[in-house]
Design a protein around this nucleic acid. Sequence first.
DNA 1: TTTTATTTTTAGGCTCACCTAATTCATGTC
DNA 2: GACATGAATTAGGTGAGCCTAAAAATAAAA
Lengths: 226, 226
Amino acid sequence: MMLSDVMEDYLKTIYQLQREGDDRIRTSEIATELDVTSPTVTSMLEKLEERGLVDREKYRGVTLTEEGKTVALEVVRHHRLLEAYLTEHLDYDWSEVHEEADRLEHHISEDFEARVAAALDDPDVDPHGSPIPGADLEPPTASDAESVTQFEEGDVVVVEEVADHDPEVLSYLADHGVEPGVELEILEIAPFGMITAQAIGADGPVSLPADVARHVRVASPSGVEH
Amino acid sequence: MMLSDVMEDYLKTIYQLQREGDDRIRTSEIATELDVTSPTVTSMLEKLEERGLVDREKYRGVTLTEEGKTVALEVVRHHRLLEAYLTEHLDYDWSEVHEEADRLEHHISEDFEARVAAALDDPDVDPHGSPIPGADLEPPTASDAESVTQFEEGDVVVVEEVADHDPEVLSYLADHGVEPGVELEILEIAPFGMITAQAIGADGPVSLPADVARHVRVASPSGVEH
DNA sequence: TTTTATTTTTAGGCTCACCTAATTCATGTC
DNA sequence: GACATGAATTAGGTGAGCCTAAAAATAAAA
């Protein structure tokens, strides 16, 4: 199937939004994410429906079909492999790779994908701890990690994934020790959702505004319930 | 200046055609090269002229302005750095890199360019022996190499550049020892322009049809006149 | 020089992905 | 159940990059 870059972007976006909980994805969510207007999204969703890539119920959003999911997974695989490669072999910092990968992900061949995967020895996760879909394009099995916002003061957790994309935010987090694999103690949860935490090994505490915290996914150490 | 991929392609094409001798580049040459129709080229040339990237004399072709040349050199630099990188670090064969580089060249950042150049230690030529424009984007100085078609039977020459792009042709040439750096003895020149030659170290002779030979650029060993 | 052939440009149209403005639908409130 | 509110869709339009067909300019031949 010959898809435009733009269509791939819509499918990827729908996939990512689906991952974040919701089942049906609404027009306006996609519009916000891709920074276009709602009518633009509506007409694109019609085209994606015609091609059998989304199931659409007028006025109440879309879900990906199996085929649409496969396309999205391919794009996500490209994106995360590129992020991993740039970090590993071209000396990029994890905070810088997103934008570059976003532009390249639509323009690499299957061959390139395979060579990059081989050079990295088929990694499971990208530098942000996000799972890289396998070459079979099966959906990666959901990890047991949850958003750090689900935990409480005093809990100690292990950072599994930092799904934010803003380079400045990521730099800040890295500077304060918040990276995949690090242990985090939750010191305080403010009423407006801001979390203050201490990363093991870091100089001082780190503050996570609600919208940043939402992207920090963590697990209890060794499967302890919280 | 914000240029579309397509505009970059036109400028690159004009630059390459200019390199191959002609001064003014005609509408039809560009059309053939980019596989579009003449009217399409005409209207694009108008746009490039408006933007000050080409000098146009109606009905008799275009030349690049300094600014247009700079853009073209940037694209060519991207292309050739990518070819070199793919060959050097991702195990591509020189016959395979062109197409991949052609798609990626428009989508890499300045930062990516710099990192790739650093990883390769600022190479002068790509795997086909074509010069890589420097980061300053000055036109590379013309080498003393000429097309092998300019030589005669019995001449011994050194291959400097193989500017063809067809993977099959390049594989054939590599199989018969025709690669940059190799010495070549011209055995026979047929009336219809086909050249038969023997590469030092290769099993048997190699036949270069006229349109292939044109792309094989060679120099006399140690500056001997021919 | 006139005619013919070739190349380029003009004219008019198409599709894609976007937009704004106006309308219709869905939903929660009285 | 009627009504207000917000979200989604329809209607109509734009620019980029492509096309075909027709006209004009250049170059070559008679």
